[in-house]
């Protein structure tokens, strides 16, 4: 999957945490992914699957136990502090909760200006112009530049978070659930804004989300995570229309659709995901999997190519076309 032109290449990332009781949380296990220029990769999965930990390692906010993150061809782990500081210019982040990620004592203007000051981009006058341009680009009015976060609505605050992330003209933006805290009527505005800016600035986007509807709309490729591993990856439409991992099938079937005519007859997946402290042997999904067989308990299925651009970590990926096996 690695190609020198990729903006981001993550190679066999592993991150485990120790709990107070000396247990190990297997947050991220052997995850590799890459993002091409201008491409949007969606990272999909439920809480605790490791998607945010993965995002933090890509941002250089957390160091992997093993494996490497290459940003624009350079290994983050081999960079000194000064290089890492420069590298952060090209990768920025948008957070889920705009009120928690914006300093309440700073005005909108000061919030967007901080990265410019921090990286010493342009003269003071240029910075001021750039800030106003950015604010108008994300749809905030000039008179809102002097407002504090609490004087803005939730949607406006998230626009501000986007303006701040784009201030350094990054190549890659990591967006961690950027619309899930917003009201439905505001969500569409912010999704459209993100799509427009991405296309205009030729941004690469790592879009972390649990919302399949939003993901189907915004991403080119999709990687589905379950308990610290990518279990399926491929082009978005291909994965969503013909999933090759039983977890993806269950996840897609669980999403309530705004169609009263096609109600489900029962819940597609039983049980809760197991704890990342005591992972089941073999495939971590086997405890909830309707297709599990003996081999699933003994051998961890590797993420392997199943078709051009498609990957699945299921021993029975080839059986997935036989719908009756899934019993969903």
């Amino acid at each position: 999957m690695s190609d020198n032109t990729d903006v981001l290449v993550a190679d066999k990332l592993v991150r485990h945490f120790k709990t107070g009781k000396g247990q190990t949380v297997h947050a991220v296990n052997d995850v590799s992914l890459s993002i091409a220029p201008g491409e949007t990769l969606a990272l999909v999965g439920e809480s605790g699957c490791g998607k945010s930990t993965l995002g933090r390692m890509i941002m250089g906010l957390d160091r992997p136990d093993s494996g490497a993150v290459h940003l624009l061809g350079r290994d983050l782990a081999r960079m000194g502090n000064r290089d890492l500081h420069t590298a952060r210019r090209s990768v920025q982040m948008i957070f889920q909760d705009p009120s928690a990620s914006l300093d309440p004592r700073w005005t909108a203007e000061a919030i967007v200006r901080e990265p410019l000051d921090n990286f010493r981009i342009g003269t003071s006058a240029e910075r001021r112009d750039h800030v106003l341009q950015l604010l108008s680009k994300v749809g905030l009015r000039p008179d809102q530049a002097k407002r504090y976060p609490h004087e803005l609505s939730g949607g406006q605050r998230q626009r501000l978070g986007i303006a701040r992330a784009l201030a350094t003209r990054p190549r890659l933006v990591v967006a961690d659930e950027p619309v899930s805290a917003l009201d439905v009527s505001i969500r569409a505005q912010v999704i459209n804004l993100l799509c427009d800016l991405r296309d205009e600035m030729k941004l690469s986007l790592l879009f972390i989300s649990h919302d399949i509807g939003v993901v189907s709309h915004i991403s080119n490729r999709i990687a589905v995570m379950y308990l610290g591993r990518i279990v399926e990856a491929g082009e978005t439409a291909a994965v969503l229309n013909a999933p090759q991992h039983p977890y993806t099938v269950g996840l897609l079937e669980s999403v309530p659709r705004p169609r009263p005519a096609d109600r489900r007859q029962r819940a597609p997946l039983e049980g809760d995901p197991p704890s990342p402290i005591n992972l089941p042997s073999g495939c971590a999904f086997r405890t909830r999997c309707p297709m599990a067989v003996d081999v699933c308990a003994n051998v961890v299925p590797p993420l392997r190519p199943t078709a051009p651009g498609r990957f699945s970590a299921c021993h029975r990926a080839d059986d997935m076309t036989k719908k009756e096996l899934l019993n969903v």
Binding site: S185, C195, H217, L252
Partner: peptide
């Protein structure tokens, strides 16, 4: 304004926004 995925259907393209705030 709701982004939804329906198997077998292409994505709806640009979402229709509800302008403004509550």
């Amino acid at each position: 304004a709701t982004a939804e995925f329906v198997p077998g259907e292409p994505s709806r393209g640009r979402l229709e926004e509800i302008p403004g705030n509550v």
